[in-house]
Amino acid sequence: MSVYVDKDSPVVIQGFTGQHATFHAEEAMKFGTKVVGGVTPGKGGSTHLGLPVFNSVEEAVRETGATVSGIFVPPQLATDSLLEAAEAGVEIAVIIADGVPVQDMVRTKRYLAGRSTTIIGPNSPGIITPGECKVGIMPSHIYSKGRIGVVSRSGTLNYEAVSQMTARGLGQSTCVGIGGDPVNGTDFKTVLEEFQRDSETDVVVMIGEIGGQQEVEAARWAAQHMTKPLVCFIAGVSAPRGRRMGHAGAVIAGDSDTATAKLDAIEEMGHHTVRNPADIGEAVLRALKETG
């Protein structure tokens, strides 16, 4: 097992023939991902990277049996592509685009409420199960197979944390980037639930940021329901109030939104907290030792 994706997950790429999609689809295939085809409206019937191109996700799903979609379209088109994927019965849809209008996500999530499609992102680096499957843009070579689950908002901070783990011989079960937007498809708590259920994950690392209360709510759930240790880092201790720090969701709106307030609350619940971003690897090692 692992969470969300593994070596058998059939993946379709939306926006397949675009430059970025092509590059990342090739990378994913080299990594072992079972890419079964792609969608570019108007180019159906052709082949790209030796795989079939379809005009619609519905057709792609029907012909290939894809259950996962990597959505590599520009932000203006992202929610439409997501709705198309969900209507076609895709189980997991990953939106990479940074810059999706927030009200588009509000409407889309309402439309998809009650359906089974898991939405990862937008503004996400993707999902990776080392050695098996990558739907995203992460540099595959820094990841290694193992038993640490990682969930983060940011891409590069995820790479930073993972490289610290890999350097200490700590491989990862799955790494999930939920994205830096204020309204996102899947929240931290939902991913923690997945990792708690996963028999191949021993320790979970949650990497959050200033803004909102998602990390605190997830940690509160974990304190009551998780048997696996949770290590948490929150970026932005030095961030000023009221400014959006790159990510649309990274803005301190109130006292409880600050990195320090969130870390204090999470520490009080008994989780492992990391105050120095360079110490994430060491903290995971300590948490792992505690589990024996």
Binding site: S152, R153, S154, G155, T156, L157, N158, Y159, E160, G180, I207, E209, I210, F233, A235, G236, V237, S238, A239, R243, M245, G246, H247, A250, A259, R275, N276, P277, A278
Partner: peptide, 24 residues
């Protein structure tokens, strides 16, 4: 820095070591 998350973490690391970031 590249990436918003790493940029924030870099600022945090500077503060932890007694400096102050001039920018994000």
């Amino acid at each position: 820095v590249n990436g918003a998350g790493l940029a924030m973490a870099t600022m945090d690391a500077i503060v932890l070591h007694g400096g102050r970031p001039a920018n994000f």
